[in-house]
Design a binder for these strands. Structure first.
Lengths: 197, 197
DNA sequence: GTCTATAATTTGATAGAC
DNA sequence: GTCTATCAAATTATAGAC
């Protein structure tokens, strides 16, 4: 992997978190990555679109791994979800309320106009949903229920970024996580009960 | 209220739903609204920023009223929330998965760079949270719990728009609503029980 | 792989006639 | 209130030297 290529992806990721897709220009990326426009087109011949796909894949993989790490260390299945919300709240605070996830913003900006980027975002979200659902099925939750709850988890996480960022407060993020917890608990208990029938 | 002014707000609203804030230009707005750039600056001397604030206020009020209408007609408190998710799913289908809410996208695009727009978005979201919380407290839910659940409702709604639009499917939206329902039910039952103590 | 130069278009915004 | 003309700056993208 090229050093410059990584620098371009990383700088673009940061800029997307602040300004979104249409608000970020190639010249800003060039400056932030300390790479010329020519270099950007060398590594991403498809221009801004293919660079964006690379950013989405990178962030998608990183967050999936983060969830799995947190889940592995969590005391119980529900804790994994609550811990992830708390981690997200910490990221918000430390970054002075930058968007923790560039994918959500980009997805909304181009979902109706760019299928290549839309499908990259879809794949990232689905990998998170799969990871969260797997965490639940492992704890005995029926796969249909687990999948629905995993969707609810990712959707709530993304939506909480919006509310917390507009308020510049982590309270909405924490409230959402806190109130979702009993739902996960109930599903796990229900799964265990039906298993012991 | 001026006819032209309304046309500009309405056209901008539609364009924001497709392309977001930075992806929508004044020339596109001018064309879609059948009004010249000069007219736009006549009604919105603050330019794109103040036009955006007007769009957010307009959409914010419309959705708040919609929620209250649905809540008034709902069979029980929980039904209001589920009905709203189903209504949002219907909007997605009918519009071929245009963003039902321009505010969420814009908020994420400019939350870190434009305080005027950020605060307008915050006010819109808070009016929805208040409306949802009021629906719950009226049903006997303690106000702290009601507020948290109202946040969860709005966050989940916004997040579901992202997942459903990237998948071009209303299933995520419906799954989120469906799985959130028991949570509302439990809070209402809990509120009634503590009241009869 | 990196760089500069540049093409062609579009951006938000303003001025001033009508 | 509406219109045209126009500004300076920025946009994505390409060409071609090194």
């Amino acid at each position: 992997m090229s050093e410059t290529r990584n620098r371009i992806i990383s700088a673009t990721n940061e800029l997307f978190r602040v300004h979104g897709y249409h608000g970020t220009s190639l010249s800003e990326i060039s400056k932030a990555a300390a790479a010329t426009i020519g270099s950007i087109y060398h590594f991403f011949p498809g221009g801004k679109e293919s660079l964006t796909v690379a950013v989405i894949k990178s962030t998608g993989a990183i967050y999936r791994e983060l969830f799995e790490m947190i889940a592995a260390e969590a005391a119980d299945p529900t804790a994994a979800f609550v811990d992830f919300f708390e981690g997200a709240a910490a990221v918000l605070t430390e970054s002075d309320f930058l968007d923790p996830c560039p994918i959500g913003t980009i997805a909304r900006e181009v979902a109706s106009t760019n299928d290549v980027i839309r499908l990259a975002a879809r794949e990232a979200f689905e990998s998170w949903i799969d990871a969260a659902a797997h965490q639940l099925t492992s704890a005995g939750v029926r796969s249909e229920v687990a999948h629905d709850l995993a969707i609810l988890f990712v959707a709530t996480l993304e939506g909480s970024f919006i509310i917390s960022r507009t308020q510049r407060s982590v309270e909405p993020m924490l409230a959402a996580g806190r109130r979702m917890a009993p739902l996960i608990d109930a599903a796990v208990e229900d799964g265990l009960r039906s298993r012991s029938d």
